[in-house]
Design a protein around this nucleic acid. Structure first.
Lengths: 118, 118
DNA sequence: CCTTCATGGTTCCTTCTAGTAACTAAGGCA
DNA sequence: TGCCTTAGTTACTAGAAGGAACCATGAAGG
């Protein structure tokens, strides 16, 4: 792995993590990485997210060019969300993070329990 | 890339992102991925982080077993922070994320500008 | 001898953000 | 008539993030 200079890396890291490092963006991106989803599908798929935060998160991702929003003008409303090509370039990283979580959550839980015992 | 079931993946994703998906954890992990650092080194290396948030973030990462804290009982205080073996397993992913940021920030900025013009 | 500096924090207070609940439009259906 | 649906918005509240000031301890400077 090639390391950037400290200053450069931190500036970059801070900027990107301001965008995708919030509580919900990664989870939304992960869900969209499997294909097109509607608003309510995402809401049901992501336990704990509120309607408002899903809206806010999707708008942010749309603004950053990671997610596209397609409105079908019908009643009741029908809106599709997709990854843009730029969003697709994040797919592997998001997948890796979720995979890491899957592998190591038990260890984290153990560490946490041990820490709290002291 | 192997996908998990939706429910499973989302639960896992949520849990890990509750741990490393906050505003500062990833940046701190990235800085520690280059080796041992002292408290004040980290503070200077990470522009914008407050003393308090650095303390809180490091404690959280220590609690989760990702970072180790070594106190040298001297005056003035000397405390070293390192990645644990568990923390090291995140190194590649964090590096990939920062690398991605480095490559694509310009595109994000363009998308953002375009979105705001409308 | 008194002041100042360095380090790694803590405490208090304010601001900001995330989350909750209620409301909306507009047509379909019983 | 009145309730269902989807994709939001709005107003309010609780909790987290951030800023400024303070602390202990010894060493160094004048």
């Amino acid at each position: 792995m090639e390391y950037l200079t400290e200053t450069e890396a931190n500036c970059r890291a801070r900027e990107v993590l301001d965008r995708v490092g919030d509580k919900w963006s990664m989870v939304v991106l992960y869900n969209l990485s499997t294909g097109t989803h509607r608003f309510t599908e995402l809401r049901r798929a992501i336990p704990g997210i509120s309607q408002r935060m899903l809206t806010v998160t999707l708008r942010g991702l749309e603004r950053d060019g990671l997610v596209s929003r397609t409105v079908h003008p019908v009643i009741p409303p029908h809106v599709d969300y997709d990854l843009t090509p730029l969003g697709c370039t994040l797919r592997e990283i998001v997948g890796a993070l979720v995979g890491w979580a899957h592998q190591h959550l038990d260890e984290i839980d153990q560490a946490r329990t041990a820490y709290d015992r002291v």
